[in-house]
Design a protein around this nucleic acid. Structure first.
Lengths: 110, 110
DNA sequence: TTATTATATCGCAATATTATAATTAATAGA
DNA sequence: TCTATTAATTATAATATTGCGATATAATAA
């Protein structure tokens, strides 16, 4: 039915899934990685950078902003975006916790 | 138009987005986290665990398998699933690389 | 062979996502 | 004020995803 049954899942699982969405589309990955390099927090350049329509990029930015992983401030007619440090650290911690939970079994598990 | 324009993005961005998809749905997060705990690689239990139809769980398992993050082996009439160590390490490395690329700016960036 | 158990696949309905053009809003500068 | 610039929003179209029932498949047990 196309509707994710969020009530079936724990808060934790839903929260991680939301964070994971930031990395589940190449455009969003590209935006994040660009913001990581260009700490100077550019915008609009992203449209050229990605080769997508302005509206499309704007939508991805909106989603990333709603996840919380980026933030933007108006500077005249343009908007400057950058990584949101707090959420980034939450994200980093959450995922590293998961990554480290795996111990390579000496014998193949299955 | 609903089609991700993968040709616009670098190999790297597409690859990360595919890996990111493993974590972009609560059911898949739940499956992964269950497999991390129950190293013993159970299956079928997942259906009860998640409260989803067997067909739905099977589909998520299929997607996780196609991403590579889990693997399954037939054991009699049932199938045992577990984390795929190689892909897990690739995933871990890739994402930690990204996570560590961020340096918290002393002055707010934007 | 037949029954049982477990999982995969198919096909569908409903919703979500991706992408764009067109429009709107807000600001800067002439 | 008028105009150019920039980005957000809206409307629209097309594809993808999610979830499930029904069915198919595979392996073992009786």
């Amino acid at each position: 039915m196309g509707v994710t049954k969020i009530q079936n899942y724990t808060e934790e699982h839903n929260e991680i899934a939301i964070l994971g969405k930031a990395f589940s589309h190449p455009a969003r990955v590209a935006i994040i990685m660009h913001l990581l390099k260009a700490k100077a927090c550019i915008n609009g350049h992203l449209v050229e950078e990605l080769g997508l329509a302005q509206a499309t990029v704007s939508q991805h930015l909106r989603e990333l902003k709603s996840i919380g992983v980026i933030q933007g401030t108006v500077e005249g007619t343009s908007v400057s975006y950058c990584i949101n440090p707090e959420i980034w650290n939450v994200l980093k911690t959450r995922f590293e916790e998961i990554f480290n939970q795996f111990e390579d079994p000496a014998d193949l598990c299955c």
